[in-house]
Amino acid sequence: MNDFDLLNNISLGQYRPGDSLLHKLHPALKISALVLLMVLVLISPLLPHLPLMFLLITLMVRLSGQSLFKLLKGTGPVLPFLLIIALIQMFLIPREYSTPSLLELGPFGVHREDLIFTAKLFGRFFTLFLLFTLFTTVTTISEISHGAEILFRPIGRKRALSHDLSLVITITFRFIPILAMEAEHITKAQASRGGSFGTWKTGLIKKIRLYIPLLVPLFIAALERAETLVEAMEARCYEPGQERSRLTEYAWNGRDSWSLAVLLILFLLFTGSRFILSIGGNYV
């Protein structure tokens, strides 16, 4: 992998075209499902809900025709950080312990609670990551912005607010490649001046320090681009707070209703078993 082609290194938000049920769902439903499932993952106890959630999302991956391994590949770069966090959690964060420590290392001890907490941390991270990558894999960015607009509709006094909010989302996405490209130009320019980009054998702190000089030109570039964009949008009659029409509209289908029903039942089952039947214990 080439360290300079930052665009290729962004694995989140990579839409892969397909023809599956998941691809064809109504965008507003996809976003709601994402939010609901995220909530479920966050409130799931370690056993038995979290593995079930993971299994469920794996099934959805199957349904979308994607490969589980490919979607999870993006976790690679974050794993070291995750390990550090796990170690800190296990050894340094004091908790209320009801059991004696399992392992003593000088002043530090590992308890059953620590292990459960760390397992939960990893479990939730991977489940959420998978969920989110799956979502971006089956949803185009314009679907996200259109879907958000539909969902925002009840919030705004008039429809215009939802237009603006969805445009905010669109432009946020629009700036990802812009920033990545600028960063790429700048790193290249500086590397060819003898900076040490591209040679990753330097330490972590040094690596971070290397990126600091990048930030100033990057921010200048981003602000300049934003200013031009405002000009361009005004030149094309965009006025914030005004109603707009829409080229693409999405129809609600039978399959959307079915999916929504399944989703709601799932949500009720999980929350019910969690909070009413108290399956899975009290560790949140």
Binding site: S142, I171, R174, R225, E231, Y238
Partner: peptide
């Protein structure tokens, strides 16, 4: 630098949508 949307089609429609 004047593109405010993400796909080619949406970009062309942006102005007329505002109108």
């Amino acid at each position: 630098s004047m593109f405010a949307t993400l796909s080619v089609e949406d970009e062309i429609a942006f102005g007329p949508e505002n109108l």
